[in-house]
């Protein structure tokens, strides 16, 4: 399969301290990749950079054959104000942004698609409820319905199952697998190694620098995990400045 996203010598730095250091490689079209690594390994920074939310200090993210903005991004739960006064249906409708934008009307077909997405995530009849009145798991289901509506070829998930009950996690993982079968490219930041082994064919193990990237079974070895932890601890101790960057 051809590459969809190519990372070339990507360095992402905050105040010259790199969060991701000299990362090169590619996400193939239709691949399902887990991004894992110790805390502070730059996982979120990486997918934010691919989503265009952060500018890299060095290197680049190149998209092959798709517009850089034809992607649906699920931020970490903490990034969304859960008390925001908005109905479940309106949140799901936001998935139509690329088609409806800020001004074009929401068609009957768009409403239908949103209602169908709610059905798919098991929240039929929740459309009038306020987003803030839902449980953490239900809120995540709503945000997945929004991803379904967005209908993008590239889907990026930042810790989608943190603070979500196991039944919801199971249901949402089935959706992720469905997206994979449909040929979409999915990149997810995850923590649960078991989950990664069972559901994600490919893995990028990141500890600021790439430790390993490829088939999950080959990446998730004891040696690699140990190396990742050692690298991240060394980084923390030194808090190095990247001379090459910025």
């Amino acid at each position: 399969m051809p590459a969809l996203i190519e990372l070339r010598d990507l360095t992402i730095a905050y105040d010259r301290h790199p969060a991701v250091h000299h990362l090169s490689g590619e996400f193939r079209r239709g691949s399902l990749t887990a991004v894992i690594g110790p805390n502070g390994a730059g996982k979120s920074s990486l997918i934010k950079t691919i989503a265009g939310l952060i500018k890299p200090s060095q290197g680049e993210v190149a998209f092959r054959g798709t517009a850089p903005h034809d992607l649906a991004y699920l931020p970490q739960a903490a990034a969304i104000d859960e008390s925001f006064p908005i109905s479940v249906f309106d949140v799901v409708l936001m998935g139509h942004w690329r088609r409806a934008g800020a001004f074009r009307p929401i068609s009957a077909a768009m409403r239908e698609a949103a209602a169908f997405a709610l059905l798919k995530v098991g929240l039929e009849g929740f459309d009038r409820r306020s987003f803030g009145s839902l449980s953490a798991g239900q809120r995540q289901r709503v945000l997945f319905a929004r991803l379904i509506v967005a209908d993008s070829p590239l889907i990026m998930l930042d810790e989608p199952f943190a603070a979500v009950d196991s039944r919801t996690t199971g249901d949402l993982l089935r959706l992720v697998e469905r997206w994979h079968e449909e040929g979409r490219t999915v990149i997810a930041v995850l923590h649960d190694f078991d989950q990664v082994r069972r559901h994600f064919p490919e893995t990028l193990l990141l500890a600021r620098e790439p430790v390993a990237w490829g088939a999950t079974a080959e990446v998730l070895t004891a040696d690699n995990l140990l190396a990742a932890r050692a690298m991240s601890e060394a980084w923390d101790a030194e808090a190095d400045i990247c001379r090459g960057a910025a």
């Binding site: 931020p75 925001f84 908005i86």
Partner: peptide
């Protein structure tokens, strides 16, 4: 509500 989702699009 969710600035990151919109900016990614």
């Amino acid at each position: 509500f969710d600035p990151a989702f919109l900016r990614a699009l």
